[in-house]
Every structure is written in C-alpha cells, then in structure tokens.
Simulated scan of single mutants.
Amino acid sequence: MSAAAAERVWAPAPLRVVQETLDLEGGTLDRTSSRLGSPVVPETSVLRGADAVVVVPAVRRDVHRWALAFGQAAVETVLGDRPTSQLLRWTTPSVHRELSYRARVVAQATLRQAGGHGQRRPSVRPQVRQARVCFVDAGVAEVALTVQYGPRLRALAARLELRDGRWLCTVLEFA
C-alpha cells in the first residue's frame, strides 16, 4: 500500500433509515422503460479508457450513478438492513438467490434477523466509496465498486446489462 493510500481518511457514513421500496431510476419505478437509455456508439470516435465501445457521457453518468446506488443497496441487503425483495426488479434470479443466501448466512453469523426489521442498527455502516464503469458492449457494462466497512475496504464486481429498457445486475461478485 502506498503512503498516499495509507494516509487517506474517510468520513464515517451517516446512519439513515432505509426506504421501503428501492427506486434506482429516480422516480420512474412504475415505468417499464428506463430513462437511462441505451449507450450510443458514435461512428467517428476514439476509444477512451478501458471501454470496448464509446458511450455518450450522459449515459455513462447515469450508469455510474445507478451502479453506486445498486452497490449500496446490495451491501445493505447482505448485511440485513434491507429486504432482498427490494432488489428483485434490478437483478436476475440467480443474483437475487445469491443475495438472499448471503443475507441469511450473515444473519445467522451475527444472530440478526435478515431484512432489518425491528433491530438495533450497528454503529458502523458500509458505504460504497467509488465505482469504475467499463462498457464492454452497447448495453453491457462491468463495474468495480469499492466499499468501506469500518476501517476495511472491500470490493464488489458487477456486470450490468440493459434488458427491456432497464439495467439489470446479471453477475455480482464479492471480494
């Protein structure tokens, strides 16, 4: 670890009450189409960064924002602070089963009830600190998330795919 990374100090994550329904589209939960849209590949453009395709900056910002919100919700779900049903719309069945399984295992290990109902909240809250988004195809993005939990940093990797006009997490890996 470099000296600059060792000196980095993160502000503690504020305690907050988790909402009952998860709205990752900013008020468009009932619509079947996503306001994020599909990435557009300009015909004359230079590839930037690690992207395999170039996307419009507005789409990149929206996917980045969505990935941060989804990552925070996924971490809260695994820790039992949020019901897994809130992520059902934003995940494939296999990812949802994995999140449910992880939430049950953590609940058993910490003697808590999964879903965060009627329990005292711990003083340390996980916080997604950053996301790196890489578009590998039009409508497919891979995301690396950095999560801080107390003094520890953890990583999540996700594959997001645009299906039926909305982004879904099709693969989620915890490291």
Rank of each mutant, 00 (worst) to 15 (best):
R8V: 15
V140W: 14
F135L: 03
L99D: 02
L79S: 07
V55S: 10
A4T: 15
L168W: 03
P83H: 02
T146W: 00
V17G: 09
P83I: 01
R152H: 10
A155Y: 00
A155N: 00
P57T: 12
S2P: 11
Q130P: 09
L168I: 00
R60N: 11
T84Y: 09
V106I: 04
M1N: 11
R61T: 15
W167I: 03
P14A: 09
R112T: 05
P126R: 15
L99A: 02
L156D: 00
A3C: 06
Q127N: 11
L47E: 06
P12N: 09
A175R: 07
L153N: 00
V55A: 08
A5H: 08
Q119S: 09
T91Q: 01
H96M: 10
M1H: 11
S45R: 08
G165V: 04
T32I: 14
Q19W: 06
D30Y: 12
V143N: 07
G80C: 12
R48Y: 05
S94A: 15
R121Y: 07
Q127F: 11
Q130Y: 10
G118I: 00
G116C: 04
L111Q: 15
H96D: 03
R48Q: 08
E76N: 09
T84P: 14
L156E: 00
A6D: 13
A58Q: 13
D62N: 14
R166Q: 07
G139N: 12
V105W: 09
V9W: 07
T91I: 02
A11D: 06
V133I: 07
V128S: 10
E98W: 11
T77A: 06
V106T: 07
L68K: 02
L79K: 03
S85H: 13
V46Y: 06
L153G: 00
P93I: 02
R35F: 11
L87A: 09
